[in-house]
């Protein structure tokens, strides 16, 4: 069986207009395109500010649902500014989450089944064995700094206090370590 071709959109404005002018459930291709493009970005925004994968996934879903809802309500005045519009929603949802927003539950209940058909955005994890091999190939100091940094995503100032170094020194070591680690990962797991 041949899968039906998805409608393509030349511009973001065209995409936004298509969703805005369609009844719920009648712009599936446009909604899928919107979701695939912006959901991973909204998820990153959520992760950065919430530091929790499940909370970020919920945040992403809420932002995307609100985007579609508000496009249909004609809230986007300039269709060329779709990205900025979504950024505004990200900020608003984050603010509401921090206030413990009651609005969230209502929106999710209204639209959840509708977006459930869109592929979830799950990033592919890196090869753990390769990462371990590459980390073990780093100089001791770089490995220690990377692990103490990323174990709990701590800023240079915290790691510096743990190791008795200056924050600037930690940044330099971290920078070198990450360059080597990325080179190793790109090279299939062996350090240059």
């Amino acid at each position: 069986m041949v899968a039906p071709l998805m409608t393509t959109f030349a511009t973001e404005a065209e995409l936004a207009r298509c969703i805005a002018q369609s009844a719920p459930g009648c712009a599936t291709d446009a909604e899928t395109t919107l979701y695939r493009r912006y959901a991973p970005r909204a998820r990153l925004f959520g992760l950065r500010h919430l530091r929790d994968a499940q909370a970020a996934a919920d945040f992403m879903q809420q932002v995307m649902l609100m985007t579609i809802e508000q496009l249909r309500c004609g809230k986007l005045k300039d269709p060329d500014k779709l990205g900025s519009f979504i950024f505004g929603l990200c900020r608003m949802v984050m603010l509401e989450l921090r206030r413990g927003g009651a609005r969230r539950k209502g929106i999710l209940e209204r639209y959840q089944s509708h977006l459930a058909t869109v592929d979830p955005v799950e990033p592919v994890a890196l090869d753990g064995d390769r990462v371990a091999r590459c980390l073990e190939g780093l100089p001791e100091r770089e490995r220690a700094v990377l692990i103490m940094t990323f174990y709990e995503e701590r800023p240079a100032q915290d790691v510096a206090a743990i190791l008795g170094l200056t924050p600037g020194n930690v940044r330099v070591i971290r920078h070198r370590g990450l360059i080597r680690l990325r080179q190793c990962m790109a090279g299939g797991g062996s350090l240059p």
Partner: peptide
């Protein structure tokens, strides 16, 4: 983000 997660997992 993936690199950070991978280091943590290792």
């Amino acid at each position: 983000v993936l690199l950070s997660q991978a280091i943590r997992d290792v």
